[in-house]
Amino acid sequence: MSLNKVDASSFESRVLKSTTPVIVLFNDASRSASNKMVATLEAAAQDQGKAIEFLEKTLEVNGPIEKMPAYDVQSAPTTLFFRDGKLVRTVVGFYGYADTFKAWVDQLAKGEA
């Protein structure tokens, strides 16, 4: 399963106006940690794909989303968790889909994050 793509022009409608919780991975395909994080989110999507929308955005160092003060995405992989258009969690770096990261995803799906 591949992640759906989002970009600056679709970010507002797909993330900020979504009625479903959203997880966005800021990715740099040239970095192995980013590629591993894609696999983590694909596993999470298999598990929680009906409750959460999983999206991938190519990291743009000076991109309009990355430079927003509320997000301040400086490196890849960075994963942002949204509920009702509001940022509820920022995860920097690689996590496997187990233990802590899985708990965060489950919390978002249940409305606890």
Rank of each mutant, 00 (worst) to 15 (best):
K17G: 01
Q74H: 13
S32H: 14
S9T: 14
L55S: 06
L87R: 07
F26D: 14
G96E: 08
K102N: 10
Y97V: 13
S9R: 04
Y71I: 03
V6M: 13
I52V: 10
L80M: 08
G96K: 07
Y95Q: 00
A44I: 09
P64K: 04
K5S: 13
V24C: 00
A51Y: 02
M37S: 03
V92Y: 04
V88D: 06
V92S: 03
V15T: 05
Y71Q: 02
T90V: 11
L16A: 01
R14S: 11
F11L: 02
Q48I: 08
A33Y: 05
D99M: 02
E60W: 07
D47R: 14
T20P: 02
S18T: 05
S9D: 10
Y97M: 07
E53G: 05
Y71N: 07
A39G: 12
L108M: 11
G85L: 00
D99I: 00
L59W: 02
V61C: 03
M37T: 13
N35P: 09
W104D: 09
K36H: 06
P21D: 10
D72T: 09
A29C: 01
F26Q: 12
F82G: 06
L3C: 10
I23D: 04
P77D: 14
K36Y: 07
A39V: 14
F82L: 05
Q107C: 08
G85R: 08
G96D: 09
A29F: 06
L55A: 07
P69Y: 08
F26M: 11
T79Y: 13
A44D: 01
S34F: 12
